[in-house]
Design a protein around this nucleic acid. Structure first.
Lengths: 134, 134
DNA sequence: TATGGACCCTATAGTCACTACAGGGTCAAG
DNA sequence: CTTGACCCTGTAGTGACTATAGGGTCCATA
């Protein structure tokens, strides 16, 4: 049993104190018990829940999607299909972004190379990221 | 020469009309010429510029960074050192993003693999995303 | 016992990058 | 000459925080 203050919880989950209070305000985290001095007091269940939220956010899930995932985790007899669908959508998007960024990286390297050779004039950054066929 | 209305430009760049006006308001896009009826009228240069902005935004660059990249492409007579410095900074960031997204992709693939043909009870997405060792 | 500083509280406003009205004007088709 | 799709300006709302003001709590040290 942990009994963490909001600051300790923040430290352990790499979250700002304000963000935790914000999550509570929007109903993503339940209201914790309070100490005599009106301080919030958290246990390991809350710690796990917040860890999950933070990690999911870091992976690009919206707060609404996080809420959905939390609901799914609470109802453990349900099919995993919804989780799979959300993850699958993200995977497609992530792979497209990797491809785009790789193209941009190559172009930036090229610009740097050309710069070294003193021919800045034909910079093709715009052409790389804004192909005529949009 | 295209001579696009704001709606046509929006369609071609997969942008909302309001967003285009917003970009103009904050000075990211130049004010276009107006028709007799005070409608905005765009050409292919604007089209290319907006395409670039959208693509760069999608890749996770902030509007301020997009502004910098646009300057990089615009001011071709800049000194080599200035161009090199900006390009180099962006290259570092782009490479970090590629690494992050690659890790994310692997994790999502893993989640999808676990979810396949299981129930939430078997699906370990929660454990994956909220490991006890935070 | 007093006090200083680290921590906590609420409430509100600000940020970024849009997005959505409200209330009106323009324009081509029928 | 009206209908409906499109455009205009201006302002307010959204998501997900982040910061600030103005105060209360806790506890180690003088």
């Amino acid at each position: 049993m942990a009994n963490l203050s909001i600051g300790e919880l923040a430290k352990q989950t790499h979250t700002k104190v304000e963000t935790i209070r914000y999550y509570e305000r929007i109903g993503l985290l339940p209201e914790p018990v309070r100490t005599a001095g009106n301080y919030r007091s958290y246990d390991d269940v809350q710690l796990g829940r917040l860890s999950f939220v933070r990690r999911a956010r870091d992976l690009g899930f919206s707060l609404d999607q996080v809420r959905e995932l939390l609901d799914l985790a609470d109802q453990r007899d349900r099919s995993c299909e919804a989780v799979d669908t959300i993850a699958r959508q993200h995977l497609v998007e992530v792979e497209r972004k990797i491809a785009d960024l790789t193209a941009l990286r190559d172009e930036l390297s090229d610009v740097i190379g050309r710069c070294r050779r003193g021919t800045v004039a034909d910079c093709r950054i715009i052409e790389t990221l804004a192909p005529s066929a949009v």
